[in-house]
Design a protein around this nucleic acid. Structure first.
Lengths: 147, 147
DNA sequence: GATATTTGTTAAGCGAGCTTAATTATATAC
DNA sequence: GTATATAATTAAGCTCGCTTAACAAATATC
């Protein structure tokens, strides 16, 4: 079997295990927090890029401005998001997470990290070292093809 | 930095890139096919495990039997799923994909494979070999902690 | 300075998917 | 054989998130 084929197969196996686990965890997280998928998407977006506008959110989620506005409204009511006027353009609002919103998303990230740490512990130092090198390469390649 | 910490960081980076790409692709696939997330979940479930029942589907999706039945009904109407009586228990239905349903999911898998192949091509044979070894270890570890 | 465009919000309405409750048919327990 | 439990379906009703359309306010354009 060619190395390319072999690598594709191995990647597919990994995807399957990884995705299944990620989806399960994510679903549990949504249930625990009582938040929907669109709501989570907004919060995660704000977690990674601060100070974006309502239209930015809509564009990123692939929905209308009206939908984005409604979604944000709900999250403001829940105390996870705050809106402030953009000083440079008073039509626009700059959105950001409240401390509560930030804590919420960090909890989700921590849960994932704990799983990844458990994974690391199951391996010998030599294996860990090799995986670090391998995944660094892979991540770089993925970022390069990713656009 | 300790190797464990380093590995966790690298894994987190890789996860992020991988998840972002996977989600984007999946969303596009749903748009193209006009199918919803629950519908996709059912089809993928049937793709991987043949001949499961309506209640199986409901349990796996975390919804009631009634919801599962409605979901399946829609997919039968669309020609992606077929129901047949279980010969051992005539109350139950054995669900399976029609050829059209199978082709649909295979298209999704192929799209993903093409990305993975592109990834492989960007790497030297030595790098590929190392990544194969690394991912095999990682997948095994993930399967072990995954339950 | 008048007009057009952009940003965000609100209202009304629609469809998807979920729930519970009722129904039918089959299987199991006693 | 009768009673109970299980598998699937259907009906009715609810919530959510989406859409379009109408609107207000600020900015861009000419």
């Amino acid at each position: 079997m060619s190395p390319e084929k072999q690598l594709t197969d191995v990647l597919r196996d990994w995807s399957e295990v990884f995705m299944r686990r990620s989806m399960t965890d994510f679903k549990r997280f949504m249930t625990e927090t009582g938040l929907s998928f669109p709501q989570m998407s907004v919060l995660m977006r704000l977690f990674h890029s601060h100070h974006c506008s309502v239209s930015d959110v809509g564009t990123q989620l692939g929905v209308s401005n009206a939908a984005a506005s409604q979604l944000v409204h709900g999250l403001v009511q829940m105390g996870y998001v705050e809106r402030e006027e953009d000083p440079h353009d008073r039509r626009a609002k700059r959105l950001s997470l409240t401390p509560a919103g930030r804590v919420l998303i960090e909890q989700g990230i921590d849960a994932r990290s704990r799983w990844l740490e458990g994974l690391a512990e199951a391996l010998t130092p030599e294996q860990q070292q090799m995986i670090i090198t391998a995944l660094t390469l892979l991540t770089k390649a993925a970022r390069a093809t990713g656009r």
